[in-house]
Design a binder for these strands. Sequence first.
DNA 1: GGGTATTTGTCCGTATGTATG
DNA 2: TCATACATACGGACAAATACC
Lengths: 470, 470
Amino acid sequence: MNDLTVSLDPASSVPLYEQIYQHIKKEIQSGGLSFGTRLPSTRNLAGYLQVSRTTADMAYSQLVSEGYIEAVPCRGYFVCELEGLYCPGTESKERHAEKKPEEKKYRYDFSPSGVDLNSFPYGAWRKLSKNILMADNKKIFQLGDPQGEYALRCSIADYLHQARGVLAEPEQIVVGAGNDFLLLLLCSMLGTGQKIAMESPTYRKAYDLLGNLSNEIRIVEMDEAGMRIDSLEASGADIAYVMPSHQFPLGIVMPVGRRMQLLEWAAKSERRFIIEDDYDSEFRYRGKPIPALQGFDRSGRVIYIGTFSKSIAPAIRVSYLVLPDRLMELYRQRGRLISSTVSRVDQLLIAGFLDDGYYERHLNKMRAIYKSRHDVLLEEMRGFQGICQISGENAGVHILLTFKNGMTEQEAIARAAKEGVRVYGLSRYYIGMDDRNKTSRQSHTVILGYANVEEAEIRAAAGCLRRAWS
Amino acid sequence: MNDLTVSLDPASSVPLYEQIYQHIKKEIQSGGLSFGTRLPSTRNLAGYLQVSRTTADMAYSQLVSEGYIEAVPCRGYFVCELEGLYCPGTESKERHAEKKPEEKKYRYDFSPSGVDLNSFPYGAWRKLSKNILMADNKKIFQLGDPQGEYALRCSIADYLHQARGVLAEPEQIVVGAGNDFLLLLLCSMLGTGQKIAMESPTYRKAYDLLGNLSNEIRIVEMDEAGMRIDSLEASGADIAYVMPSHQFPLGIVMPVGRRMQLLEWAAKSERRFIIEDDYDSEFRYRGKPIPALQGFDRSGRVIYIGTFSKSIAPAIRVSYLVLPDRLMELYRQRGRLISSTVSRVDQLLIAGFLDDGYYERHLNKMRAIYKSRHDVLLEEMRGFQGICQISGENAGVHILLTFKNGMTEQEAIARAAKEGVRVYGLSRYYIGMDDRNKTSRQSHTVILGYANVEEAEIRAAAGCLRRAWS
DNA sequence: GGGTATTTGTCCGTATGTATG
DNA sequence: TCATACATACGGACAAATACC
């Protein structure tokens, strides 16, 4: 495809198809597109420009009718000869001062927090939003339930039951604006000074958050099955923060045996609870999905926390807690003091998104996309097997590379950066100051998140990384 | 060919390709089509179903994109493994029983937290919402600034400067999902165990919230000018929670002299801060609006908190803090850990609402409406001057009636209820257990909020109240 | 066993119906 | 009513795999 980097302005008064038409006409007149050149198909152009095919059609038809291009059925559109065409001088219009896009230092960015938004069902989202704003106006602008819209809680309960094996009544579910807020809410319910066990490395934000809220964080050792129970027991903690489905950042999936031990630990004291952060559970590529810890819990010790930020879009600030019965009284006393932090419109929107099957489709679609990228990345990384080891590749949207040739994390990052590829170090996720933790893994491992890197980009980036690291 | 005896309905509103897609998906989920099975070619299927090949194509590509089947060029479509796919049960989803809306026992409800939504500019809101969802899709679904969209903070800064005399740079403003959340955030920033001075009566929710967050609440005496400085000084508190523009529920407007004393108090120690809840400041009916306390603050001790919940609609969960410089460092360390709790769509929506002048128009409209109701209510209440005294009538959207004839709050409420009118007692807003506070005012005063009662209703309700209380 | 006809996924331009303002 | 834009549906052209003579 040629230089069809049209910058369309949907808000402009000049129609979309006109903008496209003008741009291509100029390209042809200036010689950027020469005789015989095949233009992108209407489908391609529409997909690339994020407009309807008809819009691309209209632009092309206008060019056809003016003799700039020719339509060959089943083959494509081709640029005509300009002979005899009246081409008014392309007055050298001064380009407006180009908005400086923040300089992209990196060609490829393997951010572990990336999310692909190209496949987001914008149309469905708009439609749902519109429908909600059209009907029931009065109601949705009145204050809603602090716990969240009942309809949404029902939808979440159904989803969690079917997809995650979580047993939850809508009455146990608390909807809130993001995991961060829900953790804050939880802490304000449980009171300060809790002794919370966390793994290292772990989800840094949760650590900073929980730690800042006057809790005592006890770092617990982990092995290949996740948090070690003996170390947990020894830590004296009452609350264990874990990610059994897919530990971040190591990607460990806690096996069933360890899960049972963890639940046994919790059942030993009235004060003990498990915070199950079901981060990234939606995406796994091997074997059957393991139901959430919460589904095995018989003694009401698991506080389940899930979010739509990763599975729908980061800006969707909707997360949910599933509280065990024994915490519901506490929630009613303290938690309900805080009015719902999610607008009713958004809540009903997501309820509709779930109920109408859009979420199912979107999840499966994203899983397919991420799996392709996952497979491509693993295939490309196979070339590195001599110098590094791959781990965390069974689930989630990132993998870990641990260098066996002594290359440090910083060096790997720096060398990749020189080739235009951004990778991330593992060490930033280690918590606590314990120097014994400075293992080789910590200082020789990088993270590659592939959620927002397309397959072709992955292949290209892999080439860069080969140059960088060999 | 398997059991693909689809019965297509060309007249249905659901598209042909969708019908085919749904049917095959169910067939795969139920096991009727198992892993590896080859599906009929698009031509065969199209011929069999008497539809175009493109239609069959579209059905198949959707199944491919969601990972149900795989396309092998020149060979056919094959069913994939279902592992990891989210397949909601095909069984008819048991709808959770909808919660019964509580029956309306009252003909007229003078709720102090009422808001009139009849004049809400639904059209403008929809239009803004649509425009935001149309343009810039990719951007607004990415994670935004934890502090809030810069555009919105600018809009708020402008508004606060012009309307409230608040001096704030956008950098000092923190946007969050409701006052409750912002108070929670503030507490988590300041740390637990703060000694906070509050008035009695006060905004109950703030008391419960601050009290539950392991703070020590010191109850401070008040006079007709609001919080008494000597009592505040004696309380030993470091933080004073006040509502200078319009104290809830008493409706006291703090005069300038007292404001200065309050600021002087705060300036005496590095640890002291004032939380200025500018609740209801938008609505006042007599005299010039007094600028916010924050505008007089020269020593950076005022934490200003405002909201759109009251002035736009209760379900609009958007509030904002204006932090003094000395707290910004603390915010950057701790507060920014929590991602924005308001969706970017909503933030940009409100920014547009402010920038395009809708907010100004809406405020003026509502002020006019509320003032009419206020005047009507006062006029009607003149008939009660023998038995009760009116107060708090200079601002806000409620007034207080204190009975001089010995009638207790409970009795007044009960007698009004018998006539179908709901009024509210003042005593619920008194905090602390101090029996000396059980003054006559406390136990003989009712609140009448008129925001959500139309003029005609006010007149009618006044008649009922006359019958009830005479 | 090698050439040819057929089948297949894929891509193409096109036409029509339908919301929206 | 008209312009714009999108969703749906149609049938032909092509290259590669496959089946058949």
